[in-house]
Structures are given as structure tokens and as C-alpha cells.
């Protein structure tokens, strides 16, 4: 593989705050934040970066709550994005492992009580298969990058009793090696 192809370039404002403007293949990105803080949007942005270069992505969504309309709006090519639902917690590591073998990016919501050993094995498998593993929720072990979604600063467009949600600002803190500390994306 070419050196440049090791990097999965992420377009848009969020890419500017990632080291080298993207994510190294084979790395693990741990993403967290309270509900409504924008962590799903960040995960979808990364999935969009994968499908827009013609590669396949998979989203593990045990609760089945992912809004596909939002995914399409963010730029995910839905025909190349498999969404795996109804994953029992005990089979979660097996399923994510199988997906890491097949696609270029796996975004998975972490089930409660994931064992650190399983998490470490998946990190290693992602590195070995040169697949990006994006985890949503508390990730019990080390990750190449940690992104904390810290809430949407301002919702514009909505007032009391009128208007519609329009623009939002995403506040994400990026932690890892060689990273500028703080990102704000519109």
C-alpha cells in the first residue's frame, strides 16, 4: 500500500483538527459525549469520509436508533454503509471482529460492561487489518485518538415559539499524539 493511502482523509472542518488532516488506517478512535452532544454526528462524518472514497463502512447500532436520514445528509453513501442492529452484548466483540475483516471503517456503540481484554483484542485486529475502529461510548483501553463531544454550543434558528433548527456548532476536544487540542466545527 502506498504511504499516502495509509491515511483516511477527513474532509470538512473536523479534518483540520485531526493530525495530518485525517485518520491513520488501523487506528482506534474512541468517541464519547453525553446524548445530544454530537458524538453520533462525528462518527457519521468519519463514515462519510470512508464511503466518499468508494470504500465500505459498517455501523454497529445495537439499539437501532441511528437516523439514516441524518447520515445521508452528512454525506454517507448509504449503499456502501451496512448498519448492524440488534447485537446482543455478549456477541458484540465477535460481530465487530468479523466486520473489521471486511470493511474499511467500523463505527460501533460500545455495550456496557465490555471487557478490557476484548477491547484490546479488537484494537489489535483493527491495526492488523488496517481498518479504522471508531467506538462510541466509554472505551475501556487505550486508543490512538480520543474525541470528546462536548455539547452543541449554540443552536441557531430556534426561538421561543417560532423558527426551526438551522445551524449548529459542534464542540469537539481531540486528545492524542501530535494533535492541536481543541476543535470547533460548524
Amino acid at each position: 500500500m502506498l504511504a499516502g493511502a495509509r491515511l483516511l482523509a477527513v474532509a470538512g472542518p473536523i479534518g483540520q483538527f485531526l493530525p495530518a488532516g485525517g485518520i491513520q488506517r488501523g487506528s482506534t478512535v474512541a468517541l464519547d459525549g453525553p446524548p445530544g452532544a454530537g458524538s453520533t454526528t462525528v462518527a457519521l462524518l468519519l463514515a462519510a469520509a470512508t464511503t466518499s472514497v468508494g470504500e465500505w463502512a459498517a455501523v454497529v447500532d445495537p439499539d437501532g436508533t441511528l437516523g439514516a436520514r441524518a447520515a445521508a445528509e452528512i454525506g454517507v453513501a448509504l449503499e456502501r454503509c451496512a448498519i448492524v442492529r440488534r447485537v446482543p452484548p455478549d456477541r458484540w466483540p465477535t460481530v465487530v471482529g468479523a466486520l473489521l475483516d471486511g470493511v474499511s471503517l467500523v463505527a460501533a456503540a460500545v455495550p456496557p460492561g465490555l471487557r478490557p481484554g476484548d477491547a484490546r483484542r479488537l484494537t489489535a485486529r483493527a491495526r492488523e487489518r488496517a481498518t479504522v475502529l471508531v467506538t462510541l461510548g466509554p472505551w475501556p483501553v487505550e486508543a490512538t485518538l480520543r474525541l470528546h463531544a462536548r455539547g452543541l454550543k449554540d443552536w441557531s434558528g430556534l426561538a421561543t415559539g417560532e423558527g426551526l433548527l438551522a445551524v449548529r456548532e459542534l464542540d469537539v476536544r481531540v486528545e492524542g499524539k501530535k494533535v492541536p487540542a481543541h476543535a470547533q466545527a460548524g
Partner: peptide, 12 residues
């Protein structure tokens, strides 16, 4: 592993 319907793609 999970059943036929568990792996899906979304159509708008």
C-alpha cells in the same frame, strides 16, 4: 451470526 434482518442498509 445474528440473523438475516440484523445487517441492513438504509434507504431514504
Amino acid at each position: 451470526m445474528l440473523g438475516y434482518d440484523a445487517v441492513t442498509t438504509a434507504v431514504v
